[in-house]
Computed example of a mutant assay.
Amino acid sequence: MNSAANVTSSSVAEKFRDIAQSCRPDLRAGHFAWDAWRALTGAGLWRLPVPENLGGTGGTWTQFVEAFEAIVSTLRSVGFAMALANQATLIRALLAHGSPAQLDRHLPCLLDGAVGATAISEKGTGTEVRALETRLTHDGNDYRLDGHKYNISHAPNAQLVLVVASCSHHEKRATALVLLDPARDGVGRTAPQETLGVTDLPIGDITFSNVGIGAHELLGEPAAGLKLLMDIASMNRALFGLLCADVVRPFLSDALAYVAARATLGATLDTHQHVQRRLVEIEIGAQRSRWMALSALDQLLSQHPAALANCSIAKLGGARDLAQAALHLLAIHGSDGYRRGALATFVADALAMGSAGGTEEMHSRNIFSQMQRTAAATAAIR
C-alpha cells in the first residue's frame, strides 16, 4: 500500500464513489443497506486485492483502500463502513493465513458478497483474548466448541464466522481460530439486538453447544493462534481508524454550508471565531486520523514490527477524533442538530466507535505491551 494515495484522483475511487452515491437512498436507520452491499459486490469491490488465480482482479490493497475511502466518505453510515471493514479483514485473513482448501471453500462466497463475521467479544470479558471462556476441546482427532459470543456484527445473518476460542495445546493455554459455518447443529444466533447507535448494522449473539469442529476448520495452528489473531485484528483496527476519518467528511461539508448560510444579527456563523475553531478541530482530527491509519496499514502490509501498536493507535485515535467531531457538529447546529435526523443518528453512531473493535482499555494495554517489548529489545542491544 502507498499511504500517499489520494482518493480524489483515483479512477477506482471515482467508480465506487459513483456507486455509493447512487445507493445513498437505500441507507436507513434500523435497516442494513443490502442493495448497496450487492451493488458494491457486483462492481468487484471484494475482488480488488485478490490475486487472479483466486478469483480476484489481481489488484492491490491500495486500490481497495481507495475504494473504501470513497464509499465511506459518501454513504454517511458508520455501521455500513464497519461492515465493509469487517468483510475486508476476513478476506485478508484467508489470503494471508488460510490453507488452499480453506481458500477454495470460503473465498469465492465472500467475494460474491456472502457476509462474514469475526467473533471475539464475550459478555464478561469483552475482547480480552487471554480471558475468553469460549472453549475448543479435543475430541479424538477433531474438536468440540462451546461458548457464547456477544455483540458480534452481522451475527444474525453471517454465512461464515471466524470464531476465537481458548484451547489447550501441549498442556498450555492457546488461542484457536475456527472457520465456522453457523448453519450447523449446535450453533444458535439471536435476532439483531437494540443498540444506541449503528442501528443499520445487525448486531447479535452467537452460542456454541457441543459443536463438532474438524481439524481442517482451524485457521492456522493453535500454537500460533494469538500471533495470527493480532495480525488479523490489526487490519480491522487500522480500517476502523480510517473510517473514523472518512465518515465525518460529508457532515463537515454540511456544517460549512450551514454556517455560511445561517445569519444572526446580520453576521453569518462562519464569521465567529469559536465556530471556525470547531470546524478547524474537526478537520485536524480527520486528517490526523486518516494519515495515522494509512501509515499503520502500510506498516501492517509490509510486516513492520511497529504495526501492531500503530494499528491500535490508529483505531484509538480515530475513535476519539470522531467522537469529538460529532460533539462539535452538534454544537454548531444547536437545536437543529439535536432533533432526530441524520446528524443526531451520526452522533450516536460516532460514540459506538469507542468500543467497536475493542475498548480504549484494551487498546491501551496492547500499545503498552508493544512499548515494553520495544524497550526490552533496545536494552538488549545496548
Rank of each mutant, 00 (worst) to 15 (best):
V72Y: 11
I120N: 05
T127M: 15
H97S: 08
E133M: 08
G98K: 05
T137V: 15
L132G: 04
D139F: 02
G126D: 00
L90S: 06
H97K: 12
A131H: 12
R76Q: 13
N141A: 15
P108F: 14
D112R: 04
F64Y: 11
E69S: 14
L95Y: 08
A85P: 09
L95W: 10
G116T: 01
L132H: 10
A101M: 13
H138M: 12
S77R: 01
L94M: 00
Q63E: 04
E69R: 15
A85T: 04
L75R: 04
F68R: 07
R135K: 10
E66N: 14
R135M: 08
E128W: 09
Q102H: 09
R92H: 14
R92A: 03
L90K: 07
E69C: 15
E122N: 01
P100Y: 08
A93H: 02
H138W: 09
A101I: 10
H97L: 09
R76E: 10
G98E: 06
R130M: 13
G113E: 03
F68P: 07
A88R: 01
T127W: 07
I71W: 10
D139L: 11
A93M: 09
G98F: 10
L132Y: 05
T125M: 11
D104M: 11
E69D: 12
A70D: 04
L90F: 14
T137G: 00
A117F: 11
G116S: 01
A88E: 04
A85Y: 08
V72F: 14
S73Q: 08
I91Q: 12
S77T: 02
R92P: 09
I91L: 05
T127K: 06
A131E: 01
S121D: 03
V78R: 08
F80S: 05
A88W: 07
